[in-house]
């Protein structure tokens, strides 16, 4: 599913959006710590039944009913191409507001566990290092160094680029591909 990933930014970090000092919600993915600006977070909910939606990128887990509103849920592990792990008791969904073409939309982000809300000062933030073409650091705002721990501060807007997610049209599961093929056979 490489077509859903952005092209690696070879020139390193060129984004003008630098991490700002302030409150961050930190969460865990595998053994890494990430942070999202607290102002983007709407709420944190426990894991609930997620309804799969066909023909979506693999990292779109599906949709949930958030008090009468249907919102999509993104599996951040899958989005970052990390090892897939069974959901645990600690797994939870962080609902964030993301800017899109038609105003802000709420999107759920499935993470391993939420950690804490941290106040990060400007001097504790460093620019994301460049790794060359291997790792895409485009959606990293900066790196927070608090005591000895390192928190990766995410530009959640970039991570959940709505225009990318909605490219579902191009993403067809292998099985439905065969169905389409079948339909073509029929009409041939």
């Amino acid at each position: 599913m490489s077509e859903t990933r952005t092209a690696p930014n070879t020139s390193g970090v060129t984004t003008s959006s630098k991490a700002k000092a302030g409150k961050y919600l930190t969460f865990r993915l595998a053994d890494e710590e990430y942070g999202i600006e607290i102002l983007r977070v709407r709420e944190i909910i426990g894991l609930m039944d997620i309804t799969q939606v066909p023909r979506t990128p693999h990292y779109v887990r599906g949709v949930i009913n958030l008090r009468g509103k249907v919102i999509p849920v993104i599996d951040l592990r899958m989005k970052f191409d990390m090892n897939v792990q069974e959901d645990t008791e600690e797994s939870c969904i962080i609902v964030v507001d993301v800017a899109s073409a038609d105003g802000t939309v709420s999107i759920g982000v499935l993470v391993d566990a939420v950690s804490e809300v941290l106040n990060i000062r400007q001097e504790e933030i460093e620019d994301a290092p460049s790794f060359g073409s291997g790792i895409d650091v485009d959606y990293i705002l900066g790196i927070g160094k608090i005591k000895n721990a390192v928190k990766i501060l995410l530009n959640i807007n970039k991570v959940l680029d709505a225009s990318q997610i909605s490219l579902i049209d191009n993403v067809v599961t292998a099985e439905s591909e065969s169905l389409i093929e079948m339909a073509e056979v029929k009409s041939a």
Binding site: V70, S100, D102, V105, I165
Partner: peptide
């Protein structure tokens, strides 16, 4: 389903 799935 929202704009994200509008092309479904």
């Amino acid at each position: 389903l929202g704009s994200l799935f509008s092309r479904q």
